[in-house]
């Protein structure tokens, strides 16, 4: 097997040492720092972008809170307005109802008074007619004229007795 031939060992070792040391130096001094730099730059960039995104998110949350506050304020104002209007309407209604009730009461009283007057008038007329009728009936029955005043007094008397 050529691998176990000691005469090739020294040349292989020399060239291995040369090439491997060259590779190590190239990697450690030249190639790997480049890769490390770009990877670090990317990590930094990602970190920065994340921080920026977080800041923007916080800002958005603030805007959102302000918006919600404005909405709540508007709602409260609207509610107050509505309550005020409702109170106004209720007061108006109560006032109008009271007025109406008063007018109704007045009209009723008026009407009642008129009815009473009409009734009294009717009763007076009935009395007069009754006295008249009683006088004429008594005249026809007796043949003699009856005094209208006496007849009226008699009717009054009779009404009083009945009542």
């Amino acid at each position: 097997m050529p691998q176990f031939d000691p005469s090739v060992f020294s040349e292989l070792l020399v060239w291995l040492a040369l090439t491997f040391v060259a590779l190590y130096l190239l990697m450690s001094k030249f190639a790997l720092p480049k890769v490390a730099a770009i990877i670090d730059a990317r990590a930094e960039r990602i970190q920065g972008n994340l921080a920026k995104a977080e800041a923007i998110q916080a800002e958005a949350a603030g805007v959102m809170a302000a918006y919600e506050k404005a909405i709540a304020d508007a709602k409260a104002a609207a509610q107050a307005e509505i309550a005020k209007a409702q109170a106004q309407i209720a007061a108006d209604t109560a006032k109008r109802e009271a007025e109406f009730a008063q007018r109704l009461g007045a009209q009723t009283q008026d009407a009642e008074a008129r009815i009473k007057a009409t009734k009294a008038e009717a009763v007076a007329q009935v009395k007069a007619i009754a006295a008249d009728l009683a006088g004429s009936i008594a005249g026809k029955l007796t043949g003699a004229g009856v005094d209208a005043a006496a007849a009226s007094a008699a009717v009054d008397q009779a009404l009083k007795e009945r009542a």
């Binding site: 005469s7 090739v8 020294s10 040349e11 292989l12 020399v14 060239w15 291995l16 090439t19 491997f20 060259a22 590779l23 190239l26 990697m27 030249f30 190639a31 790997l32 480049k34 890769v35 770009i38």
Partner: peptide, 26 residues
């Protein structure tokens, strides 16, 4: 004895390839 052999040639090529790979990529 530091004879340049086919093995040495491959080792040199390997180092060159690796370095080229990284340098070209970066």
């Amino acid at each position: 004895d530091a004879t340049f052999t086919n093995a040495s040639l491959i080792m040199v090529v390997v180092v060159a390839l690796i370095t080229l790979f990284i340098v070209a990529g970066m």
